[in-house]
Design a protein around this nucleic acid. Structure first.
Lengths: 107, 107
DNA sequence: CAGTTATATAATAAACTTATTATATAACGG
DNA sequence: CCGTTATATAATAAGTTTATTATATAACTG
């Protein structure tokens, strides 16, 4: 549950979501990830640290480079939590049906 | 996209997730929602405002009460965004299969 | 090896977030 | 109408996050 905090708050930032969207296309180094943003390299390094801490990305060491790729653990955890809300929302529609059914009761 | 910021950052807080979990069981008033927490009522009112602003809950006015219930719009939007990551993660496994296949090439 | 490239870390300022207390508002019950 | 209940708002203090600059480290390149 503590990890959901990290995962959701990592996703709350548009720069970080853009980084993830870029990584959805495939692995990329820090410099490649930084390039499209009007932001310094240290700022991107920090965002990557946040994403890694949240379990949203993983990194390899390759010489002087640190290629990043998407990781699945956090997405799985988030999906499981959201499933609860989805179920509840569906159940609420079910309840509405129930209410409508009860308006014309048997007896 | 601006709304994803609000939705994810609303979900980043454990108190707010607990409120949503409570609402998954059905509608509740502000006082009912506040009761399990060691936190003042104004603090809960603020959390509810954040959840409402993110499109995660909706509220009715019923006399002096403001019963809250789950709303679906934000969940839908989040799901759509996460679907992109899920697709990419699956594609990455696909790529791994590809790599393994390429290790024993036709020619 | 000297210079360059890729990345990380630290100090710090600015901008947000969250909780508290105090207070306001508005409907309810007698 | 008065007191109470349900909720919201404002001021504010404390804590957190984010970006910047400056600097460090470590691997590559000629």
């Amino acid at each position: 549950m503590a990890n959901l905090d990290a995962a959701f708050s990592a996703l709350a930032d548009p720069t970080r979501r853009a980084i993830l969207a870029r990584l959805a296309l495939g692995e990329a180094t820090v410099m490649e990830l930084a390039e499209p943003f009007e932001m310094t390299q240290p700022a991107i390094s920090r965002h990557l640290k946040v994403l890694e801490g949240a379990g949203l990305i993983a990194r390899r060491i390759e010489g002087t480079k640190r290629p990043c790729r998407l990781a699945s653990s956090a997405v799985t955890e988030i999906d499981q939590w959201l499933a609860m809300l989805r179920r509840a929302l569906e159940a609420n529609y079910g309840r509405l049906d129930q209410v409508l059914a009860d308006m014309n009761p048997k007896k």
